[in-house]
Design a protein around this nucleic acid. Structure first.
Length: 231
DNA sequence: ACCCAGGAATTGT
DNA sequence: ACAATTCATGGG
């Protein structure tokens, strides 16, 4: 349990190294109790593949559906729940059955990635040993996994604290509070467009990693939560 | 009915 | 390399 909530990390050092400006200072102060979870990489990978271009409420619904349909029913302290389905189970599922959980076009990605991990008996934990950039390339070779999903898995499951996932909320943070530190033409393009090209993702991601350093992922979480509370 | 969502793959330039 | 388009579905 301590491991799951990252309670062994040196929070003092992390907070100090991240406190580079008043805005993140405010976020750190407001979310003093924030922890990074360490999720199982398989569950994390599939969850974030499903999460692409979906609202958080809809994501919860999808994952519940998948667990009820493909997971195992277990009980703990009299509380019943369903485990997250194994890659063998999902690899054997039909695309239609996955789609009916609310996955839509993501069903194909989940199926392809499940089959590959199952067939190759791929151990996602082995990515821990690779440097951030190398592990990211491997993850992005799976179906349905782009830079954002890869960064989430690296941060939440594989201990890469320098990973800096850029979703629409982090994009808003950077535009609203860090525009003066970004290239002018990038800021202009981002504020006039709703989507994020792969090139601009890379620019924002690299800004985060360079500006906040080896704990950029923690910075992302502080900023993300502040932005969501502020709206 | 309408709008957009913790983006990625595909196609066009 | 980079920009535009498409993608299926649910919750607010």
């Amino acid at each position: 349990m301590e491991h799951y909530f990252s309670l062994d990390e040196d929070l003092q050092e992390i907070r100090m190294s991240l406190n580079k400006d008043p805005h993140i200072g405010k976020a750190i102060k407001q979310f003093w109790g924030l922890r990074l979870i360490r999720q199982d990489p398989w569950e994390c990978l599939i969850s974030y593949i499903c999460a692409t271009y979906k609202s958080i409420a809809a994501i919860k619904h999808m994952l519940n559906n998948m667990a009820e349909k493909f997971g195992e029913k277990t009980a703990l302290d009299g509380f019943e729940f369903y485990t997250f389905p194994s890659c063998q189970t999902l690899a054997a599922a039909s695309e239609a059955a996955l789609a009916s959980c609310g996955l839509g076009y993501r069903a194909k990605y989940v199926l392809e990635t499940s089959k590959r991990i199952c067939n190759e008996d791929y151990d996602l934990e082995s990515l821990r040993k690779l440097p951030y950039a190398d592990a990211k390339k491997v993850l992005m070779s799976f179906s349905g996994v782009g830079a954002k999903v890869a960064d989430c898995v690296l941060l939440f499951s594989l201990g890469k604290t320098e990973a800096f996932p850029v979703d629409i909320w982090v994009k808003r943070v950077l535009l609203n509070h860090y525009a003066d530190k970004l290239p002018k033409e990038t800021v202009q393009r981002l504020s006039s467009s709703d989507s994020l090209s792969s090139g601009d993702y890379k620019r924002l991601n690299e800004f985060g990693v360079e500006y906040f350093g080896e704990y950029a992922g923690w910075a992302q979480e502080y900023l993300y939560h502040l932005e969501r509370m502020t709206v």
